[in-house]
Simulated assay, not measured.
Amino acid sequence: MKRNFLILSSFLLGVLLSMLTSCSSDTPDTPEQHAVTIRATLPEGSGIESLEGIAIEFLDLRTQHKEEKQLDKSGICQVKLDASVYTITIRGEIGNNSIVAILENYSISENATLEMPLIITKIKPTGLLFKEVFFNGETNNGQMMHPDQYFIIYNNSDNVVYADGVAFGLTAHANPLGEDAFTQELNQNNRIVLSMIYTIPGNGTQYPVQPGGQLVIAGTAINHYDADHPNSVDLSGADLEIFEPDQPEAYGQDVDNPNVPNLVKIFNRFGVFMMHPRGFMPPVLFEIDEPIETFLAKNQFEYTNNEGQTVMLYAVPVENVLDGIETGNTGNFKVKSLPVTVDRSMIGVPGCHRQVLIARKTEERNGRIYMIDTNDSENDCEAIQGQNSFPAK
């Protein structure tokens, strides 16, 4: 009996050692790791100066494990990864730029440096609209005045909106006139032909507009008020201005306030910035969601004027419009310049140089002031006496 016990014990010990050896051989080795450097590259002319903080994700397709890192200022990320197959994703926002790059099913089996070209798209600046537009001018000691024209862009949303690159224009169609080539283009191709385009400068992060915040944009950002111009106002504290260094001599020399940044002039068929004092050519606020050269090439509008001359203008697709107000002269209105999807009606001034301001009505919700915006200026806006002053602080 004792001998049998010893044989059984030896057998069990052999089985146990065999099991231990078997388990040891079945245990996978620790995966080999490799040093990987990611270089995210920006497209030429993006204007973005730093990629610091942009997220990059490494998804191990074998284990579904995710590792998240961030790019540095120059777009580099260094990481150690297990040998496996990965999907690498870069995604984030810088100002009004959305940034993305994806590299799928990439096998990591050795140290590597990978370049990932970034795709940059513009984030639509939803919520920006006109708060005030002063184009009507005033009379000062018998002199008609309109260099103190201005408009205000307001952020009606609950989020920070970057205004960099947002465009301002005036329609080419004057609404006291009947149907013409411009209204035909609008009706047939859903594009608004413009007489001028200016854009807010910036690389996507320079002009954040807080919820309930605004940008005051002056025709000329100086103090227009003095003894000879008692009905004018001080615009020296505007956020931006429009400067025309080469305007026609008949309009005199434009004044540039060195303390106020200038809008970027894209084109102006008149060579001078001036909103019609009766509002005949309504203002439009819109986005340009591609390089300006591409936008202009796609949106040329050529027509023949009454003198038989060929004139090149530019149009904006209605889908790009952020806001527009069908301004005009009450009792002197024939065909709308803006589509009903932008403004169903119109808001008029009683005449030229009456010092009438077009202002958007407001309402209070949850302790904050919002602009009323139903795309119906008769409901949303009012014509009030007297423009506002924005002196330098």
Results as ranks from 00 to 15, higher is better:
G204K: 13
F151Y: 14
G237T: 11
Q184Y: 01
F182P: 14
V193Y: 06
N190G: 07
G213P: 13
E138Q: 14
E179R: 12
P245I: 00
P258H: 13
A167L: 04
E132D: 14
P176T: 08
Y225K: 15
V255C: 01
F243E: 02
L129S: 04
Y225V: 13
S157W: 09
Y198I: 01
G204H: 08
G142R: 14
I197M: 15
P230T: 07
D254A: 07
V209T: 03
S236I: 09
A167W: 00
G237V: 12
H229M: 09
V166E: 07
F151A: 14
I192L: 07
E138G: 11
I192G: 10
E241G: 08
Q184E: 14
V209R: 12
Q206T: 10
V133H: 03
F243A: 01
E185W: 01
T199N: 05
T121K: 15
N187K: 15
I200M: 05
I197R: 06
S232F: 00
P125F: 02
T171D: 03
S236M: 11
I153F: 05
I242H: 04
L194C: 09
N259M: 13
E244P: 00
G202R: 01
Y154A: 07
S232K: 00
T205K: 13
N187Q: 15
Q188H: 08
I123T: 13
K124H: 14
G213H: 08
A227Q: 14
L129I: 10
V133P: 05
A221V: 08
G213T: 03
Q206C: 09
K124P: 14
F130M: 10
P125T: 02
I200E: 04
L215A: 08
A167H: 01
S232M: 09
V255H: 06
H229N: 15
Y198G: 00
F134A: 11
N155H: 04
D228M: 11
E179H: 11
L129E: 08
H229Q: 09
D226M: 04
A238I: 07
G237K: 13
Y207N: 13
V255A: 06
H229R: 15
G169E: 08
D256L: 12
R191W: 02
I222E: 04
Q247G: 02
